[in-house]
Nucleic acid binder design. Structure first.
Lengths: 197, 197
DNA sequence: GGGATTTCTTAACCTAGGTTAATTTCTTGG
DNA sequence: CCAAGAAATTAACCTAGGTTAAGAAATCCC
């Protein structure tokens, strides 16, 4: 994939956040990271203080519990900025790894320098703010769903909200996203099948 | 409480987010909301597209499940901006209400106008961004804890992380914060008491 | 200070979802 | 196109935590 295409996609994504951005401040060159289906961009516990951009394709954020069980925090489709805000901002190791669910190409900038340069621009600040608002709101909604709804309801909501993912993504990942085991999801699906004739 | 004191506290809080702010753009006057211990600033499902500022005292964010069960999303001590980012930004009804755990005084500005005026200022944008980063990171850490640790471990972490709250806050709210019933929390406390002699 | 209310604990029982394990179906690389 | 691995289902059993209920302890307020 052509670097220029990725760069254009990156800029278009930021533009889509709603504010004009002046890229003249940016003097860094991007890094390219091809990631094969199933492989990880980085794992839980590693440092990842980069700004990553997923041009296209699908990834999931994965955490591993004390008991060694995998948990899918979220699915993300490109184009979007991915990575750990917490790790970028604090320099701490990431709480969740990122696994590619299709072959993808990711680009990165070192966050500290990137932000340092781009923070000259008000449009960039406003765009990054809009991004933070988006991801925060998504988390708030997810927390609310977890606390207020049963596993069965969360599965039905997932199917309604992400009909494409329902087809593309292995059931075990969907189960780990709604917070249950694949076995429990099978039981729920069986029950729903029966009650819908 | 004196309005001027609240206003000064509000500005000092923003300053604490790390950037100089020029308040000349702000022409709105604030509203005062006294809230008595136990009362709500607003309830789940209401509109709350205001920027609220808690000068001092303690509040909790409360959600109610489908089954009518209360759930504490977070505890917040003043001075801090409180309210729902989601409701401010989207104008949608809030997913969580805010209940005062002590008598408190809250001030507010209508978010849309406030933001419109203040977004002239780069220091304000950077400060608000820092705030969004903070609350997002807190959510990411909480999500990680929920998924990775047992209820017992979450209770021990709560005690270690918030020793003051442990004394001030009724156990039932702590239970609902770590995601279990007060009965289950009693069992855990009993077990810990025994195993520590 | 004392009755009323709320909070906390304990006990007995129940259930959603976890665990293990065996079977079937689907993918995929050669 | 087939063998081998991965994914999904089903069954039998188990357990953390929920539920109901009833006392004990703390708090509130008149």
């Amino acid at each position: 994939m052509d670097q220029a295409v990725l760069e254009a996609s990156f800029r278009a994504y930021f533009l889509g956040l709603g504010h004009d951005i002046d890229w003249q401040y940016l003097s860094l060159s991007m890094m390219l990271h091809p990631v094969r289906k199933g492989d990880y961009l980085f794992h839980q516990g590693e440092l990842a203080n980069q700004l990553y951009f997923l041009h296209s394709g699908l990834v999931r954020y994965v955490g591993v519990s004390d008991a060694g069980k995998e948990f899918t925090q979220t699915f993300v489709k490109g184009p979007r900025v991915i990575g750990s805000t917490r790790a970028m901002v604090t320099g701490m190791p990431v709480l969740f790894g990122i696994q590619a669910l299709s072959d993808v190409m990711v680009i990165s900038y070192p966050w500290a320098e990137f932000f340092q340069q781009m923070s000259q621009d008000k449009g960039f600040l406003a765009s990054y703010m809009a991004f933070l608002e988006q991801i925060f709101i998504a988390k708030e909604e997810r927390e609310s769903a977890f606390v207020k709804h049963s596993a069965e309801r969360r599965y039905m909501d997932f199917c309604a909200d992400y009909p494409e993912l329902k087809e593309q993504v292995p059931l075990q990942y969907i189960a780990s996203y709604i917070g249950i085991t694949p076995i429990a999801l099978s039981r729920i699906r069986q029950k729903l099948k029966l009650s819908n004739g």
